[in-house]
Design a protein around this nucleic acid. Structure first.
Lengths: 124, 124
DNA sequence: TCTATATATGCTCATATGTTCATATATTCA
DNA sequence: TGAATATATGAACATATGAGCATATATAGA
């Protein structure tokens, strides 16, 4: 099969080369809304850092406070706090205050599931 | 419940503050091997960029070549090629050559599952 | 109110990342 | 073999990111 190049000219005047216009059209048809793409990448980004991933796997078991997470991870409490803020902004964790201590928990089972599925992938 | 701070001194001579030593121990007990952590973060990192995520969702439907992906995404073929290399290094895609054209496919159903689960998470 | 403790925040720096441009490689066809 | 096409690669650059330090806020207890 010899593919034939078809070129179209876009609105901005730039020629765009495409070999299979129908494939491109189908890709557009099944594409996910760009806002969802960005929210999705934000979630994966949260899981894409070793520190954050270790935090999340730790929280998969039970709630923990900043101080204990810092001891578990071997990094400063400030660094943990920065990461917790990110995770909180993404609604992956939520906190519960008991006196001076903030306990963090996973906000959602999906997060744990994502990690389990990822593990399954790399272990196969 | 008033937590009591216990401090231990680590091998390097630094005092580490911990409120719940038993929580830290349990977190250690259930912790994932650090090598797996890094492989896992690499996979999530692959999904954490809008361009790559759109590439993967496009390939969820059918195989596509660099040229068509570039047209679909609206970015240069070089940029696509760089990303395909990353995805290939992570074994998320594989390629099939037909003449001058390289067709990429998802190498693994898990990747698609990861995305579906992520979508479920953000849509709930 | 004053002090101690637990966590958060702003700033900064080193490093990582994504894209572009120019160039290289690989394949097809004349 | 030489030209054209499809993709890959390397260097450069702008931006993003994670962590540390200093400082701020919040809560508890004296």
């Amino acid at each position: 099969m010899t593919p034939k190049v078809s070129s179209i000219v876009e609105g901005d005047g730039c020629a765009v080369r495409m070999i299979h216009p129908e494939k491109i059209q189908r890709a557009r048809d099944r594409s996910i809304d760009i806002r969802e793409i960005h929210r999705l990448t934000a979630v994966y980004k949260a899981l894409s850092d070793p520190t954050r991933l270790r935090i999340i796997t730790a929280l998969k078991g039970e709630e923990m406070c900043v101080c204990d997470l810092a001891a578990f991870l071997g990094i400063s409490e400030s660094a943990v706090s920065h990461q917790m803020r990110r995770l909180k902004d993404l609604a992956l964790v939520r906190s519960r205050r008991d006196g001076q201590v903030l306990y963090y928990v996973l906000d959602d089972d999906h997060v744990g599931d994502l990690i389990d599925l990822g593990l399954e992938h790399i272990r196969e």
